[in-house]
Design a protein around this nucleic acid. Structure first.
Length: 210
DNA sequence: CACATGATCGCCT
DNA sequence: GGCGATCATGTGG
């Protein structure tokens, strides 16, 4: 069955405004934290689908050994990371899974936020998007969408949370052991208490208020 | 619950 | 040629 159908939205919660360009033209960890609680929405065949982001990671570009753009690497795959903030960068990992990033910062500064997990509109399938590849699968996102602009594309929108949750868990990024010291940088952010967060359950992690 | 493993291929050196 | 910004399934405690 079509996984998208479980993300069908009859209507968005009231009082939401789509993120404009400026939202994305800020330090990447700030954008990452402000993406928590945001609704990621797309339209397919006139129908609205979406989910609420609960876990993200910041990738800091040329100085970040875990980033695909480390040391300015610029290939066809990574090209969307060099565009202005608000674009989408999608790549394939392990030959079978897609992962989606929201590009940050101004044109030429290749930083991004990896979307790691989201909550579906109805709580019954709470783990459907609890991982970066599961998020992409559930929303039918693949590499053909790499490079689209979330700010101007009529079929995609991002609605930041107007009343952000203050309890944000901060931890090291997942799956980047190859990056040496950078593997321990505190660049993974998640909403405390969400059922949809990926990976090991939070237990004794640092919790931070913003 | 914790760990281990196989699947599968585009991307870069 | 080597290896992933992962997931589902399997085993054992």
């Amino acid at each position: 069955m079509d996984p998208l159908s479980t993300l069908c939205l009859s209507a968005l919660p009231p009082g939401l405004d789509p993120a404009g360009r400026d939202f994305f033209l800020r330090p990447t960890p700030d954008v990452a934290k402000d993406l928590l609680g945001a609704w990621f929405v797309r339209r397919v065949g006139g129908v609205l689908y979406g989910a609420r982001l609960v876990e993200v990671e910041a990738y800091l570009g040329i100085v970040d050994p875990a980033a695909h753009s480390f040391r300015g690497r610029r290939t066809a795959r990574v090209e969307p990371m060099y565009r202005t903030g608000g674009h989408l960068y999608v790549f394939l990992v392990y030959g079978m899974h897609s992962c989606a990033n929201v590009v940050t910062q101004t044109e030429g500064v290749p930083e991004a936020v990896l979307i790691r997990a989201a909550e579906p509109p109805r709580d019954s399938e709470s783990r459907l998007l609890s991982g970066p590849a599961k998020f992409c699968r559930a929303l039918a996102i693949d590499r053909t969408l790499s490079g689209i602009d979330l700010v101007t594309d009529p079929d995609f929108d991002l609605y930041p949370d107007p009343a952000p949750e203050r309890r944000i868990a901060v931890s090291p990024r997942i799956g980047v052991a190859y990056a040496g010291e950078a593997a321990s940088w505190p660049l993974r952010f998640s909403l405390v208490g969400s059922n949809a967060v990926s990976g090991p359950r939070l237990s004794s992690r640092a919790v931070h208020s913003t």
